[in-house]
Design a protein around this nucleic acid. Structure first.
Lengths: 203, 203
DNA sequence: CATGGAATTAAACAGTGTTCAATTAAAAAA
DNA sequence: TTTTTTAATTGAACACTGTTTAATTCCATG
């Protein structure tokens, strides 16, 4: 076939991302198939290469969708969160875990997809990733008595801390198998760390 | 061919693990090929299925080898470590990072391989994984004024904290891209956490 | 209506994991 | 020693991948 008018370029792009995202959720990264994703969208594999340029870019687009959903999930959780600092931090961390648990395959796909340094990430995809970090920046960094640079470093370190708990938990890795409440452990660690970085007047 | 006497069952097993481990180091998990690993060992794919029972068990065996090397690496680093608590903790965390950095592909393969709950892990492979945790248990837990249960929980949480920093760093993930010394951040976080769990007389 | 250009596909290629009948070598039995 | 049994090893088949490219088919424009 040739140019088909049943979908505009943008519609087609979104259609394929949607189909791939759903398939990733069903199968997980290891059993994902671009062929199958295209098939379900009613197109053939080649179309993916046309639209995205390659499999890596397609996977990046799928993961960007996950980042958006994840950000929205966190924002939603923060609406109902308590007003005190510890309460908000706990809500944030538990929402982080909640999204991962309720969307295991697509959450893990974010980290399963290793992107070669050679291929460049579109600014749109970059923004999706930054969006998540910026939520934590807003919630945490502003309340600290640190200069911006130190606060940024600490926030990223806190994200790594929470990520570590969540990743080991969901991969069923040895370290957290017997732990009943990994999210609670992450919350505790984050709060312990934060007390070290509060100015006396804040603690 | 039939039964060949050039390798005993144990030798063959080790030969294949060695070959697979080397290939994993060269290519990484995504581009690993059991066929190629067997080829390099001078056998055909079927042999892997004979010896290990399936691809999953083969990958588990390869990763067990990594765990042994990793444990040895940590023990070696602890020999030259300072005697004070903070110094030993720092040495441990930096050795953790050092192994991962110097063996990126085989280190990441540990977490890339998702093991279905249905397949059971041989006690030998379990021991390889426990061995690593037990090093941290020995170094950290015994110095804390906690009961065994709480200490175990905390140690695993600390491992998750360090793992998170290391994983985000090596995957080139958004959160730690600009961080110059991720290991140092992990060390700082671990020490900050530990001060919260020391009895007054120890701090 | 024709024609050029762009979207879409089908087919080909080189790989993969997995299974299993056929083969072959060594060990056991005669 | 010769034969038979047993077990290790392979090769081929199957159904899949991702990736590239020539051929097709549709649409918009002249």
């Amino acid at each position: 076939m040739g140019r088909r008018s049943d979908h505009s370029p943008d519609e087609l792009r979104e259609l394929l991302v949607l189909s791939g995202h759903a398939l990733m959720g069903e199968r997980g990264f290891a059993k994902f198939s671009a062929r199958e994703a295209a098939r379900r969208a009613g197109y053939s594999v080649g179309t993916i290469y046309n639209v995205f340029g390659g499999l890596d870019q397609y996977l990046i687009a799928i993961n960007s969708r996950t980042f958006h959903e994840w950000s929205a999930w966190l924002e939603a959780a923060l609406i109902d969160a308590p007003r005190d600092r510890a309460g908000r931090i706990e809500a944030l961390v538990r929402a982080y875990f909640g999204f991962a648990q309720n969307n295991q395959n697509i959450w893990m796909a974010i980290y399963d997809h290793r992107i070669d340094r050679s291929i460049e990430i579109a600014s749109e995809d970059d923004a999706a990733r930054e969006g998540l970090t910026s939520i934590v920046d807003r919630e945490v960094a502003s309340t600290l008595g640190l200069n911006d640079s130190d606060a940024r470093r600490l926030v990223r370190s806190l994200i790594a801390t929470v990520h570590g708990h969540c990743a080991l938990w969901l991969t069923g890795s040895y370290a957290l198998l017997e732990e009943k409440d990994p999210a609670g452990q992450a919350v505790d660690r984050v709060l312990e760390i934060l007390t070290h970085h509060l100015t006396p007047s804040e603690s």
